[in-house]
Design a binder for these strands. Structure first.
Lengths: 346, 346
DNA sequence: CCGACCTTTGACAACGATGAACCTCGATGC
DNA sequence: GCATCGAGGTTCATCGTTGTCAAAGGTCGG
C-alpha cells in the first residue's frame, strides 16, 4: 500500500497538500490539484481509514444490533440499511444480540467506543438501559416499544396498519373478523402486539362493528411464527365461533393460519379471508398469496440513518428524543380477493 | 474515554508498562500488574482498537462478502460465521455483492486493505480474479465452484449429499426418481448444479437404475427459488412422464415442487416422495415437512475461519490452495416417510 | 512604494497505541 | 571485586493521517 507520503513525494508537494486534495479542501490551485490527482492515480493510493479515524476521532462505522439474522424481517431490514448506509458513505457492522438484554448491553460496552453510531433493534432493554446505551454512543432505536427516555426511535405504523387491514376486510363485506396474535400480558417488549390490537379495535370502531373477545386470539411464545399461527387458528376453528376473516399481526402467523384453515378444509379466500403484516417474501410466494401491510422498510432504513447522522454530527441536542413512524402500505393479494392471479404472482 | 496515558498516571507507572499488562507480555512483576489492573478497572479503560491497529498493522476485522442476506442459506451462514468468529475474538463485517463480479472486486479494492481477512461467497469471479482477490487480502472462499488458482476454499458435499438422497429414495422403494434443478449450460458459476447432478447419477448407478433424461429437469434463473421449482414440476406433470420421487437440488425448489404437486392433487409422500437440499428452516416448517440434506453449515463456518486464521497468521504458504468439504447429513422428514408427526414438527 | 490582506503552501505536532533500544539494580559466577 | 546477566522498567520513534500555525508570494488601494 502506498501512503500519502509517497503521493506527496511523487507529486513534488507537501503531505498536507495531498491531504487537502484528498479531502476536497479549498485553497489548492488547479495546477497543483491535477499534479496530485495524477500521482494518486499512478500509485493507486487510497487513504488509510484507520489512520484517518485515529486522527479525526470520527469513525464511519455504524453498528447494527439485531436479535437474529435468520428471520426474514431482520435480514431484509439489514439489507435495506446497508444499502442506504453505503449511499451515505458509512459502513455497517452487524451484531447479533439473540434478543438478550445482557448481550445488548455487552455489545455496547465492548464495541460502542469504537463505533461512530449505533442502530439497535432492542428487545430486552429497559428504559434506563436504553438511555445508558444512547449515552455511550450515538444511537437510534428501531423499535415498536416506546421508551420513557430521551432517545431517538423509528417505528412502524402498527396501529394504523392493522386499522387499514380491518378497513379493507370491512370494505369487502366481511364482518366477523378475527384477530390473531394478541397479547394480554402487557409486557412492554410486546408493544407491537398491543399497538396492533389497538389498531384492530380502531378498525372495528370505524366500521361500527362490535369488539368480540372470542375473536381475539392470543398466541404463545414471543416469536410470532407459523406454528403459533396454526395453533391459534385451530383453537378458533374448534371453538366453533363463527368468523369470516382473519387479521394476523404478522405474516408468519397468517401463514400458519392459512395452513390450519386449509387443513380443516376451509377455502381461502372463498370462505375466509386472511391477511398478515410485514409483507415478507414468504407472503408473496404463499398460496394463496397473502394480503399484507408493507411496513415501509426502506423508509425505516432511510429515516433511521438520517436520525443517526444528525446525532453523529452533533447537529441535534444531546439528550433529546425524536420519533419517526414510517408510512404503511396495504398490499392486496389473493388471500383477500380470490382473484385468478397465478401462484407466486405479485 | 480514558487512554493508556491516564491509566499509567493513575497506576504510577510508564505507558509502556500498561501496554505490557494489557497485552499480557512477560517481564512485569506481579505487584505492578495488579496496580495496573486496578487502575484499568477504576477508569474502565479499553484499548483504542483504532490506534492499536494503526500501530500494529493488524486488524481483527474480517469481511464476509455475500451476494444477499435475504436468502435463508446466506443469513444462517452469516449467523454461524459470526458466532464462530466471536469465539476467535474476531469481528465480522458483512458486505453485500449482489452476486456481481464488479461489486465483488470493488469491495476488495475498497475495503480489502483495511480488513485482516476475507471470507467470500463469490459468484461472478473468474479464476484470475479470484487469485487477485486472494493476493489483496488473506481470503478463504466459500464456494461450490473449484477455482483453477491456488486459493483456499470450503465447500459442501454436493455430490455425496445428492447421492445419499437418491440412496434414501431407493431404500424406500422408489425407482423413478426425478432430479429438479439441473443445469446444462455448463457455466462455471453453476457448479453446484453440476455437482449435484453428478451425485444424482452416482445414486442411480449405485442402485443399478437407468439415467433417464426425461426425469432430469432444468430450471431457469440462476436463483433456485420456489417459483422455478413449481414451474419445473408442472412441466414434468404435464409431460406425463411417470415418476414416484423428486430429488430437488435445493429446498426452495423442493418447496415449489411440493406446491405444484399438491396443486395437481398428488399426495406427498403417499404418491410421490420429495426431498431437498440445504436443510433450511422453511424445509422444517413446510407441510409436509421436507426431507433434506443438512450441508454442515456450522462446520463450514468453523473450517472457513480456521483456514482464514492460518492465512492471517501467515502460518501457511502464501500462494497455496487448500480445500475442505464439509460433512453432509441426511435429515429425514415427512415428505419421504409419510409419518404422523404434526405439521411443523422436527 | 508600502502596508493590509488574501491565497497557496508547507512544517510540525498530535491522535493512542506498540516496538526497539536502553537504563537500573540486585543477584550470580569466577 | 568486577564483569555479566536478567527482570523490571523507561524513553523515544513510529504507524498514516489531519489540525494549527506561519511563511511565501501575489494583489490592491492609497
Amino acid at each position: 500500500m502506498s501512503t500519502m507520503h509517497d503521493v506527496a513525494q511523487r507529486a513534488g508537494v507537501s503531505l498536507k497538500t495531498v491531504s487537502r486534495v484528498v479531502n476536497g479542501e479549498p485553497n489548492v490551485s488547479e495546477q497543483t490539484r491535477q499534479k496530485v490527482d495524477a500521482a494518486i492515480a499512478e500509485l493507486d493510493f487510497r487513504p488509510n481509514s484507520v489512520a484517518r479515524n485515529l486522527r479525526t476521532g470520527r469513525i464511519d462505522l455504524v453498528g447494527l444490533a439485531l436479535p437474529h439474522l435468520s428471520q426474514p424481517y431482520f435480514s431484509s431490514l439489514a439489507e435495506e440499511i446497508m444499502r442506504e448506509a453505503e449511499r451515505l458513505g458509512l459502513t455497517v457492522l452487524i451484531e447479533l444480540t439473540e434478543g438478550d438484554a445482557e448481550a445488548e448491553l455487552a455489545l455496547v460496552r465492548e464495541h460502542g467506543p469504537h463505533l461512530g453510531g449505533l442502530l439497535m433493534y432492542p428487545v430486552g432493554l429497559s428504559d434506563a438501559q436504553a438511555l445508558t446505551v444512547a449515552r455511550t454512543v450515538p444511537t437510534v432505536f428501531i423499535s415498536e416499544r416506546a421508551y420513557d427516555a430521551p432517545v431517538d426511535r423509528v417505528a412502524m405504523a402498527n396501529r394504523e396498519g392493522v386499522r387499514a387491514l380491518v378497513g379493507h376486510m370491512v370494505s369487502l363485506g366481511y364482518t366477523r373478523i378475527a384477530a390473531l396474535g394478541a397479547d394480554h400480558t402487557g409486557r412492554p417488549e410486546r408493544a407491537a402486539a398491543h399497538l396492533r390490537l389497538e389498531g384492530y379495535r380502531d378498525g372495528l370502531r370505524d366500521a361500527g362493528l362490535p369488539y368480540l373477545p372470542d375473536l381475539v386470539l392470543e398466541v404463545g411464545t414471543p416469536h410470532w411464527n407459523r406454528q403459533e399461527g396454526a395453533t391459534g387458528m385451530r383453537r378458533l376453528i374448534q371453538a366453533g365461533t363463527p368468523f369470516d376473516a382473519v387479521v394476523a399481526f404478522a405474516d408468519a402467523l397468517a401463514l400458519g393460519a392459512l395452513h390450519a384453515l386449509q387443513e380443516a378444509g376451509v377455502r381461502v379466500p372463498a370462505e375466509v379471508a386472511v391477511a398478515g403484516f410485514d409483507d415478507t417474501d414468504d407472503a408473496r410466494y404463499a398460496h394463496p398469496s397473502l394480503t399484507s401491510i408493507a411496513p415501509g422498510r426502506a423508509q425505516i432504513a432511510r429515516e433511521a440513518l438520517a436520525l443517526l447522522n444528525d446525532r453523529m454530527n452533533g447537529t441535534v441536542e444531546r439528550e433529546s428524543g425524536r420519533l419517526v413512524v414510517a408510512d404503511h402500505q396495504l398490499t392486496v393479494r389473493e388471500s383477500t380477493l380470490g382473484g385468478t392471479a397465478a401462484w407466486g404472482g405479485a
